[in-house]
Nucleic acid binder design. Structure first.
Length: 731
DNA sequence: GTAGGGTTAG
């Protein structure tokens, strides 16, 4: 840029706030800058020309520095510091700069300085910026204070201030306060309505959001594209494709501007509401698409479990950002395909096309949890520390869940204790961890501490808590929590809570009380309710009630093979052989297949899977000879196998002894004994429940081989050490 | 007599 000729200073008055400055050719050039160098030139000329004595001209420079893409807010701050006597306009310019550049803390600190150093009071322009920063920080209490200040100054009738307050309160999850601001406004514009609709939808008040939208129509306000994005968010959360379709039609009919964001929101609504076909049809018609559109479509394929389509779409992306990787990883993780999720994560690491972010790590950690892949999980923990990522609540929850489900409760507790501000998810995950390891008392203690920390429990917290009670035999406590849920915590017990409670009562042998509870349930009885009762009947050898429970369960889930196996075990234990064969025939006729047992053990970061009687593993021979060695040692210790469990499902009598030895968890155990150093714990994950015989064998092996073994089965953890198990045979 | 607010994917 050619240097503009600077008129001599004497031609211009030097008085503050004189409007002649605004027309100064140098000042008008500010907006035309397209790089930092040009801006710096202007800055220098303005200093030379003495234009900084006019706060207005200097503030123009602040605005340009802060809002242009080529400059920084730090630079804007330097400009501010050169203004000899900044007025409110200059202060506001700097506050705005920090607010829009997402530096809310700096924004607040400048605001505080303004209160002390500026002779003028903050005005209707100051408040919106400050409230925006507070919204970003979700500082509810501070925001209420600022709200109070604004009221005192009589600024709350200002449209902008009120609109910001609505946004602020909904960001803080305080929809009530937002509604109060909204209804007290003397005048509202479309932005007021939009903020209210979107805020309600984001906070899960979907009915209310749609209601407000209907009211907006009645009051003659014309909705715009942003309005419709909010309404679609509500539809998406409601999972109501009918309302979604109606909204889509409304957009077409009323000629609402179809911005890219709005189109993406329509697309997202269809995929989330389960109509991937409609999403695809819409997607194909979209004129403009961005990475969000593609990723949304990818998520849609993932939700259908169509991994090939998801992969195909992913491969066709010209540039793969981290969100696209995340969508693919999450599709596999959510679709019950954790191994593939981990393999995509490894591919991402190798490709280096994007850097894993928090979402990537959370999804991958979930996959590790499912597989019991503690080495990779631990590696991710180290990665988080190495990269200096802040351990937020999402990551902490995922880590606690991973360590718990991989059998390392100590590490889970370390993560838990390292967190300063724990949200309800973090607390609940820790309660679940204690529960599955049979530490019910600690789970309860954690719940107490959670209340001291003033964190409100959710329905999930109670599921975890009740499940902890059942795994530890805490009947009294379970009853008490269950009965306090609604009156004290305002959480209506759902079917999952009833199922846990029946488990609590049933395991303790209180079958009548359990049955009574089932009879009086105000919600529909699920398979899990009858399953819990059936399990209790096995433990307490009640054939009649078992048959009743099984019939109900069978009605709901005719293909549930676990139910067949359980009932069959109950018959076997009572010597009802006729009923066993009758049941076996019924199972065969119904075409129900027993899910094959599958166990995995992680060695050097790789997860090795074993099916029943598997000999696919390259070290198969060694594994079987190890199993023979174990059998020999057990025999010499006087151990005799107990064949009652699961065996009726094996056809030939002489296969029974062999079949026991072929149980997948034993193969995994043998492989662990061969490959892991004697000091290392062996961690095994099994998809089904461990049978009684294997449980006894594991106890003995832990003593004879002096090994710690951690086994996670379908229901809980078993820590074997020195010949005993942490579950105290209560499972 | 200068300025300001709301939206989409994981």
């Amino acid at each position: 840029m050619a240097a503009p000729s600077v008129p001599p200073l004497t031609n211009f008055p030097t008085v503050n706030n004189d409007r002649y400055f605004a027309n100064h050719p140098t000042v008008t050039l500010i907006e035309k800058c397209s790089n930092l160098q040009q801006l710096k030139q202007i800055h220098a000329q303005m200093l030379r020309a003495g234009l900084f004595s006019d706060p207005f001209s200097a503030s123009k420079l602040i605005q340009s520095s802060a809002l242009s893409g080529f400059s920084s807010v730090d630079y804007a701050h330097k400009v501010f510091d050169q203004i000899p006597q900044p007025n409110l306009y200059s202060w506001n310019a700097l506050i705005r700069a920090y607010a829009t550049r997402s530096q809310p803390l700096s924004c607040l600190s400048v605001f505080t300085r303004l209160l002390n150093d500026c002779s003028e009071k903050p005005n209707k322009f100051t408040y919106p910026f400050v409230i925006k920063a507070l919204a970003k920080l979700k500082c509810l209490e501070l925001g209420k204070g600022i709200h109070g200040m604004a009221i005192k100054e009589g600024l709350c009738s200002d449209l902008y201030v009120s609109n910001c307050l609505i946004h602020f309160y909904t960001e803080c999850g305080c929809s009530d306060m937002a509604s109060r601001v909204f209804s007290s406004m003397p005048e509202r514009d479309v932005i007021s309505w939009n903020s209210m609709i979107d805020g309600l939808a984001q906070n899960g008040f979907v009915e209310e959001a749609i209601e407000i939208f209907c009211r907006l129509e009645g009051e003659g306000v014309r909705p715009n594209d942003v309005t419709m994005v909010g309404v679609l968010t509500a539809c998406r959360k409601k999972l109501d494709v009918k309302v979604g379709r109606w909204v889509h039609a409304y957009i077409e009919k009323n000629g609402i501007k179809r911005s890219l964001i709005l189109c993406n929101a329509i697309l997202d609504m269809y995929t989330r509401c389960g109509s991937v076909q409609e999403a695809k049809r819409f997607f194909d018609k979209m004129v403009e698409k961005d990475i969000i559109s593609w990723t949304t479509m990818l998520v849609g394929y993932g939700s259908l479990g169509d991994f090939d389509a998801a992969r195909g779409l992913f491969n066709s992306l010209p540039s793969k950002d981290i969100a696209a990787w995340n969508a693919l990883i999450s599709a596999h993780e959510q679709g019950g395909n954790p191994k593939e999720a981990i393999s995509v994560f490894n591919e991402l690491q190798l490709s280096k096309t994007a850097k894993p972010d928090e979402v990537t790590l959370v999804s991958t950690l979930s996959a590790c949890s499912e597989l019991g892949a503690i080495e990779l999980g631990g590696w991710i923990h180290v990665y988080i520390k190495k990269e200096g990522m802040r351990l937020n609540c999402h990551l902490a929850t995922a880590l606690i869940d991973m360590y718990s489900k991989c059998g390392d409760l100590e590490k889970a507790l370390d993560v838990f204790n390292s967190m300063d501000n724990k949200d309800v998810f973090v607390w609940s995950a820790m309660i679940a961890g204690f529960g599955m390891h049979g530490c019910g008392v600690y789970a309860m203690e954690t719940f107490e501490k959670m209340q001291e920390a003033k964190v409100k429990p959710t329905a999930i917290t109670f599921t975890n808590l009740l499940s902890a009670c059942s795994h530890s035999g805490l009947v009294e406590e379970g009853r008490e929590f269950f009965h306090l849920m609604e009156p004290v915590y305002n959480i209506v017990p759902g079917v999952e809570h009833y199922a846990c409670m029946i488990d609590v009562l049933g395991r303790a042998g209180l079958l009548e009380e359990a049955m009574e509870l089932i009879k009086n349930m105000p919600v529909a009885r699920s398979a899990s309710v009858w399953g819990a009762l059936l399990g209790a009947c096995r433990l307490h050898k009640n054939v009649d009630l078992a048959e009743e429970a099984w019939e109900h369960l069978h009605q709901i889930e005719p293909q549930n093979h676990g139910a067949y196996v359980l009932l069959s075990n109950i018959y076997t234990n009572s010597g009802l052989w006729d009923k066993v064969s009758e049941l076996r025939k019924r199972m065969k006729d119904a075409g129900v297949k027993k899910e094959p047992g599958c166990s995995s053990v992680e060695v050097n970061g790789a997860v090795h899977e074993f099916l029943v009687g598997d000999n696919a593993h390259p070290m198969s021979k060694k594994i079987y000879s190890k199993l023979e060695e174990i059998a020999g040692r057990l025999k010499s210790e006087g151990y005799e196998s107990k064949k009652s469990e699961l065996l009726p499902m094996v056809e030939e009598e002489d296969m029974q002894e062999k079949a026991l030895n072929l149980h997948s968890e034993r193969l995994a155990l043998a492989y662990g004994l061969i490959t892991l150093k004697p000091t290392r714990r062996i961690r095994i994950v099994k998809n089904l429940r461990v049978c009684e015989d294997c449980h006894s064998v594991f106890k003995l092996v832990s003593k004879l081989y002096d090994r710690e073994i951690v086994l996670r089965d379908r229901y809980r953890f078993h820590h074997f050490k020195g010949g005993s198990c942490s579950c105290n045979n209560y499972w």
